[in-house]
Design a protein around this nucleic acid. Sequence first.
DNA 1: ATTGACCATGTACCATGCCATAGGGTCAAC
DNA 2: GTTGACCCTATGGCATGGTACATGGTCAAT
Lengths: 133, 133
Amino acid sequence: MTPLLRIGEASARAGVNIQTLRYYERRGLIKAPERGSSGYREYTPETVQLVKLIKRAQKFGLSLNEIKHLLDFCENSKVNCNGLHDVIASKIADTKEQLAVLNEIEKSLKLLLDSCSTKGPLDRCPIMRSLND
Amino acid sequence: MTPLLRIGEASARAGVNIQTLRYYERRGLIKAPERGSSGYREYTPETVQLVKLIKRAQKFGLSLNEIKHLLDFCENSKVNCNGLHDVIASKIADTKEQLAVLNEIEKSLKLLLDSCSTKGPLDRCPIMRSLND
DNA sequence: ATTGACCATGTACCATGCCATAGGGTCAAC
DNA sequence: GTTGACCCTATGGCATGGTACATGGTCAAT
C-alpha cells in the first residue's frame, strides 16, 4: 500500500528533471525501479529521498562518481562506515589542493593586475609582457 | 628569410600537440597561417610564442574564451590596455568566488567527517544521516 | 474514437579542451 | 617507384552532468 510514484511525480518531488532520474539510473546511482503493467517506472518514496541525498552530496562538491562510491559502501559494507570516511577525507584533501591552486592563481592575477597602471600604451602593458616573458 | 615552421615543428616548439594548433586556429586564438605550395601550414616563430603565451595564460586559470578576449583587445585596441585590466580583474573576482565556495565546502566536509567517530554501525553513521536530513 | 497527459527508448546536443582515427595527399630519399 | 615521414580534412571520442528531441506506447476522460 506504499504510494508508488511515476517518474513525473517522483522527479518533481525530488526537485530534478525527469531525464535526470533516468540518467542516475543509467549511472547506477539509483536502482532500476519496478515497472507497472504499462511498462512505466514506479518509484518508492525512498528513491526520492535518495535523489535528494545525491543532490545534497553534490553541494558538498562530490562528483556523481564519488557519490556512487559512497552509496556502494552503504550497500556492501553493512558493518561500518570506514569507506565513507575515506571518501570524505580524500575529498577534503582534493579540496585543499584546489584551494591552494586557486590561491596561487589569485595571487598571480593580482600581481599581474597591479603591475600595470591603466591607460598606458598597449604594447608596453606589463600584463602582456608578463604573459610573454 | 624567417624560418617558417610546419605544424609538427611548430607544435613541438610550443610544447603542444599538433591537433592543439589546429584547434586553436578553429577557435580563433591564432590566425590561420599561410600555406605553402603543398597546402601545408607554415607558422612563424611569433605564432609559437603566442601559443606559449596562451598556455601560460591558462595556468593563470583563464579559459580559452577569456584568453581570446584578451588577445582580441590586443588586436583591436591599439590605444591602451583597459580591456586587459577588465579581463584580469573579473577573473580575480571569479577566483575569489570560487575560493569562497571551496572554503565553505571544505568546512562542511570537515564537520561531516568529525561528526562520525569511525567504526560504528553504518546505519547510524552521522555522515549518512547528515546527508539524509 | 479521439484528445491530452503521461510514459518509453534512443539518440543527439551543451560547454570545456583537447586527442585519436580514418582516408587521403606531398615530398624527399633510396 | 616505392617507402616513410610528414601533412591535410573531417569526424568522433574522452569526462562531466545533465537537457532536449524524435518517435512511439498507455491510459483516463470526453
